[in-house]
Amino acid sequence: MFQLAEIRHMVRIPPWLFGQTLNDAVIEELNRKLANKVVLNVGLCIALFDVTSLGDSYIFPGDGASHTRVTFRYVVFRPFMEEILEGVIKAADADGMHVSLGFYDDVYIRRDSMMTNSRYDETERSWVWDYKIEDDLHHLYMDIGERIRFRVVAEQFTDTTPAGPNLAEGENTVADRKDGKVPYIIYGAINDQGLGLVSWWTSNSAGQEEEEEMEEVEVGETS
């Protein structure tokens, strides 16, 4: 789920960081610039991994800061396609479910990528998987706060940089989120054996030797 992205950047080191060694100052500036931000088509930046090359530093006329060309590797959150991840259900509506990983909140499981016979229960405000086994119908509820396992099926990056100067004021990121502009969305699917709530599949350790069909029976029993 985490990858290393190699990035080259001209780092501006303000004069008040001159007291530190160049290395420490560069690390601090890079982390300040990138940590907890989404870079378009790269992913959500977590922390600096290492600096691979450090160029010469320059001072430009009219600016007290020094500028250094740096190539570095940054840890980014970017699950590959088909990767299996676990998260917590944060919200549900008729269109699907919203899953959070704690540090990353924009995972959506759409209604068409759920198990067949899933439906949205308006009164409970949660999704239900109507699981049928030997003429017995089980209602498996996916409540908010439950741990859920899903497969990454699609990702979507949105450029949230402001379009014009009139938008460049105030808290852009907050406003963009309200407009429904989310920089990085992951779409998940739970329409396969073993996906869905973690508790469905780990109900009982005795089932480990059994075949898949036996697993399903156990799932039915716990509901």
Partner: peptide
């Protein structure tokens, strides 16, 4: 800022955990 390689090495959860523990 230019991205040289957006898909470099893949890290395991353990490696990220160690790195972040160091950061903190």
């Amino acid at each position: 800022m230019e991205v040289v390689n957006s898909k470099g090495a893949v890290l395991s959860n353990y490696e990220v955990l160690r790195l972040l523990q160091e950061v903190c």
